[in-house]
Simulated scan of single mutants.
Amino acid sequence: MAKHELERVELTNMCAIIDEENQKVVVQKRVKSWCGITFPGGHVERAEAIVPSTIREIKEETGLDIRDLKACGIKDWYNPETSSRYIVFLFATTNFSGNLLEETAEGEVYWEDIEKLPDLELSSGFWEMAEMMLSRKYAEFSYLIDGKDWIKNFY
Results as ranks from 00 to 15, higher is better:
Ile37Glu: 07
Phe126Glu: 05
Asp113Asn: 10
Phe141Ile: 04
Ala71Ser: 13
Thr93Val: 00
Ile18Arg: 02
Arg67Ser: 15
Leu117Asp: 03
Glu61Val: 00
Val109Pro: 02
Val44Asn: 05
Ile66Gln: 09
Trp34Tyr: 14
Ala92Trp: 03
Asn99Leu: 12
Asn79Asp: 12
Leu122Asp: 01
Val25Glu: 03
Lys24Ala: 01
Thr93Cys: 02
Asp68Gly: 14
Ile87Val: 10
Gly98Ser: 02
His43Asn: 09
Arg56Lys: 06
Thr104Arg: 09
Glu45Ser: 04
Tyr86Asn: 11
Thr82Ile: 01
Phe96Gln: 09
Glu45Thr: 00
Lys137Ala: 00
Gly125Ala: 04
Asp119Glu: 14
Gly98His: 01
Trp127Asp: 07
Asp119His: 13
Phe39Asn: 06
Pro40Ala: 01
Arg85Ser: 05
Leu6Thr: 06
Glu45Asp: 12
Tyr86Ile: 00
Asp146Arg: 14
Glu10Thr: 09
Lys3Cys: 08
Ser124Gln: 15
Asn153Cys: 13
Glu131His: 04
Ser123Gly: 11
Lys32Glu: 07
Leu122Tyr: 03
Asp76Asn: 14
Val88Thr: 08
Gly107Asn: 08
Glu128Asp: 14
Lys3Tyr: 12
Thr12Tyr: 13
Ile55Asn: 06
Arg8Cys: 10
Val26Ile: 10
Glu140Tyr: 08
Glu10Ala: 10
Thr54Cys: 15
Gly73Glu: 01
Ile145Cys: 13
Glu81Arg: 09
Val44Ser: 04
Lys148Ala: 13
Asp19Gly: 04
Pro118Met: 01
Trp150Cys: 14
Ser123Asp: 05
Gly125Met: 03
Val26Tyr: 04
Ser33Glu: 13
Glu108Lys: 14
Asn95Trp: 06
Thr82Arg: 07
Leu100Met: 06
Leu144Gly: 13
Asp65Trp: 12
Ile17Glu: 02
